[in-house]
Nucleic acid binder design. Structure first.
Lengths: 137, 137
DNA sequence: ATGCGTGCAAACGATTTGCAGCCGG
DNA sequence: CCGGCTGCAAATCGTTTGCACGCAT
């Protein structure tokens, strides 16, 4: 008898997946797949770059990590505390990010969309700057 | 006697540049370099893809067009009416876009950044949806 | 005349995919 | 045992660059 098809199969517990999740966890900010891969190697965790990409993609699809794109199109990943909709204040130097919410933004997006008769609305909003630590350095 | 070095050389008036600017103009929405290239060919304008990329980049640098990135990292360009800071309400189907401003957003970004001691702040905010025309189709 | 602008082909860099072997459940 | 997970190498794909030639100034 087939397993319940409504619910996606849970990911398998592998050494690699654990390492990736952990590394992403204490990174505390946004980093690229390649950067994460380097951290893992540096820490002695032997993981293939392919696996890093595949795992991050999976985590993103599962909504367990947030994704954003650099100005030059590179994908950055971050393990977020809240699964609910939120925005970020990101340091463009170190990648560290603060999760922030913007009630105003939500309202603005909704109102603007309605005014122009757009439906199925969603939006993106991120703030970039230099954090105190990086400014000091 | 050398020309004034403080001011960048004005772009040359070439057939290709004109065609690109024109096509971008009546597109009325965001489109990728490749899409623009196809439109040009379809219209009978013989322009190299390379030139399209280079010209769009130049226009973007000059602040004459806005750039945003698709979820999968593709760059989209749009000729905007106002050179001043603004945001967009974009149709994810046809790319048509409305320029909107968000006083609330600016305030939110500034306030949030200050609260967390971030400096050199800037932000991005775009709204995506389906426009009335596309919904009907 | 002088070089910027153009275009073709090759180079690039991030990401994806084919496929054979491994290992967690 | 079995199928998902892994990883290497090769393939994609958008975009950039090297270089020789043409055209705008």
């Amino acid at each position: 008898m087939p397993r319940d098809l409504d619910r996606p199969a849970p990911p398998r517990a592998t050494r690699q997946r654990a390492a990736i999740a952990a590394a992403l966890g204490d990174a505390g900010g946004f980093l690229s797949a390649q950067a994460l891969h380097e951290r893992l190697r540096a820490a002695g965790d032997r993981v293939g770059l392919t696996t890093v990409y595949r795992t991050l993609q999976a985590l993103a699809d599962a909504g367990e990590v947030d994704v954003l794109r650099t100005a030059d199109g590179e994908a950055l990943y971050r393990q977020c505390a809240s699964a609910v909709h939120h925005h970020h204040l990101v340091c463009r130097r170190c990648g560290r990010a603060v999760e922030v919410e913007g009630p105003d933004i939500e309202a603005w997006a909704t109102a603007t969309a309605r005014r122009y008769r757009f439906t199925d609305v969603n939006h993106v909003a991120e703030i970039f700057g230099t954090c105190a630590a990086c400014r000091a350095a």
